[in-house]
Simulated assay, not measured.
Amino acid sequence: MIIYGNSLSPFVRKTMVFATEKGFEFELVAPQAGGEAFKQASPFGKMPGFKDGDFLISDSTAIITYLDAIKSEPNLIPTEPKARARTIWYEEYGDTIVAACSGTMFFNRIVSPRFFGRPGDLAAADEAQKTAFPKVADYLESVIPASGYLVEDRFTLADIAVASPFATASHAGCPLNPSTHPKAYGYIESILARPAFAKLIVQETQALAATAQREPA
């Protein structure tokens, strides 16, 4: 199996963590190194792309759906109807609401200056941190059960999908505040401490430190 992408993307990170938690062996390949296979897997050039033998597909949710279908255990997507629906809702919350906010900060503070060599829109990043981020954090603070897991009092895709874009926000200089959002802070810290996440976070932090000198003066 090959996952095309970079784990700094919350969608690639989500896919990698899901695959690791499921026990799959896979190789991470940068899109530019993927050649024609990546283009076939992801015709619009979006990460992640995926290859398993002659099967090619893109989009984190599509890839995760495939992985879950070919290996049902450990069960990370509940089968009970209400729990399954909640899991998909939390994936949507992570993929669209949280990722939109964290992506604005990460792109303008990190990607644009360090990878594209041009200043980002820091005003947009600051506005996202000031206005949007507190709202997504407030919601998470309000829904975390006493168990510390979002669905069925156990680790599921919901936790993976929500934690991943919050990791991106932290990389962008906007971690959760333990004073204002203690439950959300403790929850994200706990999920990101899982080995599948923790290894990636260390690698990402090191990679970002190495790019710091690329920022334009």
Rank of each mutant, 00 (worst) to 15 (best):
I57R: 09
F26R: 01
S42D: 00
D138P: 05
L176Y: 07
A158D: 00
F55K: 10
L76A: 08
P182R: 08
K22Y: 06
G35E: 06
F115K: 12
P165A: 04
T168A: 10
C101P: 06
Q40P: 03
E27A: 12
I64W: 07
I63H: 06
D138Q: 15
E25T: 13
E21L: 07
F166L: 10
N177L: 02
R214H: 15
L28N: 02
L150E: 05
G45Q: 01
A163Q: 03
A30S: 10
A132P: 00
E91S: 10
Y90A: 04
A37S: 13
A30N: 03
K82G: 11
E215L: 10
Y66P: 02
V162N: 04
N6P: 00
I64F: 07
V143H: 09
D138A: 15
V98C: 05
K130Q: 14
T168L: 10
K22V: 04
P134L: 09
I188Q: 01
F155Y: 15
K51P: 00
H171P: 00
D159H: 07
F166A: 03
A209E: 14
G94P: 05
T205S: 13
K14N: 02
A207L: 12
I77H: 11
D54P: 00
F133E: 06
I160M: 06
S60N: 12
A169T: 02
N75I: 13
S60P: 08
R109K: 12
E25M: 05
T20L: 11
I3A: 01
D54C: 07
P48F: 00
T15L: 00
E204D: 14
Y139D: 09
L76Q: 09
I70Y: 10
T168P: 00
A69T: 11
G5D: 02
Y139T: 13
P81A: 09
E189Q: 13
A100H: 13
K135R: 15
I63M: 04
A209D: 13
V136R: 07
S170C: 12
N108W: 07
T156D: 07
S7G: 00
R194L: 05
P78T: 08
P216N: 13
N108Y: 03
I3E: 02
S112R: 14
S147R: 07
N177Q: 08
Q40E: 14
S147A: 11
G34W: 04
F38N: 05
A209G: 12
K183S: 10
P145V: 08
F107I: 14
A137P: 07
A137V: 02
P48D: 01
P195D: 04
A212Y: 02
S112F: 13
D138I: 04
R214W: 08
K135E: 14
L157Y: 11
R114G: 03
S147M: 06
N75Y: 10
P195H: 03
G49Y: 02
F155R: 07
M16Q: 13
L76W: 08
Q213W: 11
A210H: 03
I64P: 09
G45V: 03
A163P: 03
E80T: 11
L67S: 05
N75C: 15
R154D: 03
P175I: 02
F116Y: 14
